[in-house]
Simulated assay, not measured.
Amino acid sequence: MPKHDVAVIVLAAGLSRRMGARNKLLLPVGGLPMIRHMVGVYARITARPVIVVTGHEAPEIEAALAGSGADIVFNRDYAQGQPTSVACGLRAAPADLPLLIGLGDQPLLSAEDLRALIAAHLAGDRDRISIPLHNDRRGNPIVIPAALRARLLEDPASPGCKKFTRAHPEHVQFHPLSAPGFYADIDTPEAYDALNEGASPC
């Protein structure tokens, strides 16, 4: 399948508190650490190296990604929350490309799901942020037009996507995409057990 000229940012800096003593991104999925699995999925749809933003247990995450071809960016402010990691990734990404910003803990996502999202974005208003939606639930990843990247960095107190997309609905479009991978994060031991048992971790 052809690859898209899109920059991919995968967030892998979180504290993983809800998983307990284990870092969820290092748990095995299909014989690979979860973050390595996710980078592999994203790498199938982009012509560029996948950018991974690290923070918590950064050396371990980096070791899990050794040889993957990912570009690793460390967010020194990761303990302040996900918006800082989004901002870190945005600053590291090419300025002239649309951006696909995803999470490191969505192993149900497939490359086909990602292609469906990109296709929906290209068929819609390419100047708007594209967000998957199913039963009024927002999903991830999302697509950011290159022209809006600077807008997401304007507010130093709350950079990133969450506040901006809610404050500026005129810059957002939702796409009806029902694939469960968009909406399933592996945040808890129960969700991870359900994943391994073949059930939905939602």
Results as ranks from 00 to 15, higher is better:
residue 69 G to Q: 00
residue 42 Y to W: 13
residue 20 G to D: 12
residue 49 P to M: 08
residue 103 L to V: 13
residue 113 D to A: 09
residue 63 A to H: 12
residue 76 R to A: 12
residue 12 A to E: 03
residue 102 G to V: 09
residue 62 E to G: 02
residue 65 L to P: 02
residue 43 A to K: 00
residue 35 I to M: 02
residue 110 S to L: 09
residue 44 R to S: 12
residue 94 P to C: 15
residue 48 R to N: 09
residue 76 R to D: 13
residue 74 F to Q: 11
residue 51 I to C: 03
residue 36 R to F: 01
residue 32 L to I: 02
residue 90 L to C: 08
residue 54 T to F: 01
residue 44 R to M: 08
residue 45 I to A: 02
residue 46 T to A: 15
residue 84 T to G: 00
residue 21 A to G: 03
residue 111 A to Y: 06
residue 51 I to Q: 05
residue 69 G to H: 12
residue 77 D to E: 13
residue 15 L to K: 13
residue 67 G to W: 04
residue 36 R to T: 05
residue 79 A to H: 15
residue 71 D to R: 15
residue 36 R to M: 01
residue 86 V to Q: 15
residue 48 R to T: 01
residue 88 C to V: 08
residue 94 P to S: 15
residue 29 V to M: 03
residue 19 M to C: 13
residue 81 G to I: 11
residue 117 L to R: 08
residue 93 A to P: 05
residue 94 P to K: 14
residue 70 A to R: 02
residue 51 I to T: 11
residue 52 V to C: 03
residue 83 P to M: 07
residue 113 D to T: 03
residue 87 A to V: 14
residue 87 A to D: 04
residue 97 L to N: 10
residue 91 R to A: 14
residue 110 S to A: 09
residue 16 S to V: 08
residue 64 A to Y: 03
residue 44 R to L: 03
residue 45 I to F: 03
residue 112 E to T: 10
residue 61 I to R: 00
residue 41 V to C: 07
residue 88 C to L: 05
residue 103 L to C: 14
residue 24 K to G: 11
residue 56 H to F: 07
residue 69 G to K: 12
